[in-house]
Design a protein around this nucleic acid. Structure first.
Lengths: 207, 207
DNA sequence: TCTTTATCGATATAAGTATATCGTTATTCT
DNA sequence: AGAATAACGATATACTTATATCGATAAAGA
């Protein structure tokens, strides 16, 4: 089934609100509540949730527990996905220490770097290994996702290495636009776009 | 003038390609070239560029130098904007060390934290100051943008402090959704959305 | 039990964005 | 000089996404 991209993007936000409700022991949640918390319209929330296959109850809304399961299934986050991170610099370290990934279905197993000074160290409980070992380890551990946090000039060669290692999806935090075979899924995290939107909003440029 | 949000988001990408061409001493660039580099359609590129107010020449395209100026003006990146960063943890440090901001019209002037161990230190050439000084300094230095890289649980109070300090725009790297007065511009950088899109693409869920 | 109410969910409309078509134009080649 | 070409830019179309409308329904209260 194909879902609209914006719906997928909002998925984690719904999940966050739901987990909070669950922690507070609240059993039911309405699309109206969610919408208020996330500054969306109730209609949009209902439409998004409908895509996860769940059905609500008039006057009460949705069962929190049920909805969480449904959403996680929708996002493919029921079982955590293992990933390798390449580039144990400042940004890489930040991601290694980011607590939220767990509940987002992501599990960074290990970090890799080419710098001898970094190899062998441990960052936020994750070992930093020699980049040369990526290929054998990725195949042995059946890793499908690589996270690139190397400087822009090394991004392409790093990506090539990952592809060679049999990686299917790449989460690219470098500003470089990667050229890779079509079957490789790339997701680029674009800091400059974010800032562009902010400055455009400030100068009242953007819709 | 109001521009479509997607156009604004693509702006920095165009700029990156253009700067590369400029560095290589290439004088002209066509929408077709740009589109190829960024995996877009030439039509879309032309439409986006048209919004910057530039005019091209048949058979040759656009003058690189001229287009850069035009684009920077469009994005409001002609003169760099000063900003404060709050939260000198791993992510904050990563941003302080990020080289690309300069050419993206952003200038992080100083960092702030509440941790006495961090206050007084220097990260990537930027001083870490006491968060208590934010208000007076922001007013004195006429700072309008705050970057939040504190843990989620402190995000709201940090944002309140920034608003109190007269900040207009907030770039929020915490997963928290902030509740702030309407006149404050917020841009949230959402890691989990990015990962959601990646995993959706991998499971062939997303359009 | 009957009425009111909050919410869902289906259908319809509108807004926003991307793509296609095509005539025009400056350049290059013959 | 004239023909061919590559690219622009305007207009039109298609696609995607968001919002509005409204009947149906289960719960709560009179």
């Amino acid at each position: 089934m194909k879902a609209p991209l914006p719906t997928v993007k909002r998925g984690p936000n719904y999940l966050r609100v739901l987990l909070e409700y669950q922690q507070n022991g609240i059993e039911w949640i309405s699309a109206t509540d969610i919408a208020y918390r996330l500054k969306l319209t109730p209609i949009q929330v209902r439409k998004d949730l409908a895509l996860t296959g769940i059905a609500g109850t008039p006057k009460k809304g949705f069962m929190v527990d049920e909805l969480i399961i449904s959403l996680k299934e929708f996002l493919g986050w029921n079982s955590n996905t293992d990933a390798f991170l390449i580039g144990a610099g400042a940004l890489g370290s930040a991601l290694l220490g980011y607590k939220g990934f767990d509940e987002n279905g992501l599990n960074i197993v290990a970090a890799f770097d080419s710098d001898p000074l970094k190899i062998g160290s441990v960052i936020h409980g994750k070992k930093v290994l020699d980049i040369k070992k990526v290929k054998t380890l990725a195949k042995k551990m059946n890793i499908h996702i690589g996270i690139i946090t190397v400087p822009a000039e090394f991004a392409q060669s790093t990506a090539d290495t990952l592809v060679d290692a049999g990686i299917k999806g790449i989460w690219n935090f470098s500003p470089a636009k990667l050229k890779l075979p079509d079957h490789i899924i790339i997701q680029r995290e674009d800091l400059s776009s974010g800032f562009a939107v902010l400055s455009a909003k400030i100068s009242k440029l953007a819709k």
